[in-house]
Design a protein around this nucleic acid. Structure first.
Lengths: 203, 203
DNA sequence: TGTTAAGTACACCGCTCTGTGTGCTTACCG
DNA sequence: CGGTAAGCACACAGAGCGGTGTACTTAACA
């Protein structure tokens, strides 16, 4: 019923409405936070009338949940589907996201909304679990002794880097990457076949 | 009335005003979040008139900053000043805070307020740095090769556990403690003298 | 006794927020 | 042409927020 572009009868309005709203969400919710971004401001930024916005989304809650769902492809498949890297390198590549992600929107949403039952909070939970699972799969592929554990550990490092980056206003991902390197070295039976380089953070 | 005491000049009013406000803050800001807790509700919980609250604090911002400052002693000295533990054990003890801290209020404040210039955000930053410094000191005491690095790493683990606990609604500190054990083993030149027990999480 | 500090009770202001109601415009299409 | 779906502009309701103003009460002291 919604999805414009090609309406049921072939309509094609400004086409963007929904897209522009979600696009504006990505920017504003991120820069200003969810609670500090009002629907008026958001609609203005999206160049969409408020009335239209509420025809596409039943309310802000639904919009926020949809907004969170828009991060999946870039992060998940962007890192894990790189066949040019060895499994080990893929695990480490998860920590190389400096310009893309100033801070984790899932953590931010969970904290801001503050209701574990909120659709967005539930999705954040699902997403975090999915990332840990992906890391575990890759860890298994890399030959880790206990891939589940390593996946969970690396996921914790990512979240720690995100949280710390936010609070301290300084990039904490290099530190996380250094820890990850240690954990990976410890978890993989040494003869992993791949490369043997070590990443030591000094300074 | 209630709890009596002695004021500056010998007055002894209800005594609690300020204390009760801060005490109510600890509970409500934590349970409901800062933004979702209004001054009306807070004053009602503290059994203090709103007028009185605004005579003790210039505004909510100041109250929030003060609220954060109330966490110091319990966490910082509670863990690091334990002379009955070896330095190594103290480093690991920082991850044993299950019932005391359901989630880190500093991260929550930084995310909720969303303004790095906010007094509370600045304090959160200072506090996190202080914790890392304390950890580094203890790491040095334990004979770590690069205490600064280890301190920063352990601090990141704590923040990661806090963030992940929040998002997933499940205690992530055991995982963080397991990582910490590995890092500490790797950083201390082996003959640390103390115990040699290993903490492996298999769950 | 009166003064004064501390607190109470409660209405109130101005603002912002989410969400609607209403009427108008634009475009497609038969 | 007229129908219809999408969208716009704009005001407005209802609620909650942070914060204030005002008048009253209580307790300590002199």
């Amino acid at each position: 019923m919604t999805e414009v572009e090609k309406g049921p009868q072939g309509r094609r309005r400004g086409r963007g409405a929904r897209e522009r709203i979600l696009s504006a969400s990505q920017q504003l919710f991120r820069e200003q936070g969810i609670n500090r971004t009002g629907m008026n401001e958001l609609c203005a930024a999206a160049q969409v009338s408020k009335r239209t916005a509420y025809q596409h989304f039943t309310g802000k809650d639904e919009l926020v949940a949809e907004y969170l769902r828009r991060f999946d492809p870039s992060v998940l498949s962007g890192v894990f589907d790189r066949t040019d890297l060895t499994p080990r390198e893929r695990l480490l590549a998860a920590f190389d996201i400096p310009p893309t992600t100033p801070l984790c929107p899932y953590i931010a949403a969970a904290v801001e909304l503050h209701d574990p039952q909120h659709p967005a909070s539930q999705y954040a939970r699902d997403y975090k679990k999915a990332v840990a699972a992906r890391l575990a799969d890759t860890a298994r592929e890399a030959g880790a002794a206990d891939p589940e554990q390593l996946g969970e550990q690396l996921a914790l490092l990512i979240d720690g880097a995100a949280a710390r980056t936010r609070v301290l206003n300084a990039d904490a991902f290099p530190t996380a990457a250094a820890i990850a390197a240690v954990l990976i070295d410890n978890a993989i039976p040494a003869a992993a076949g791949d490369d043997r380089r070590r990443e030591e953070e000094s300074g």
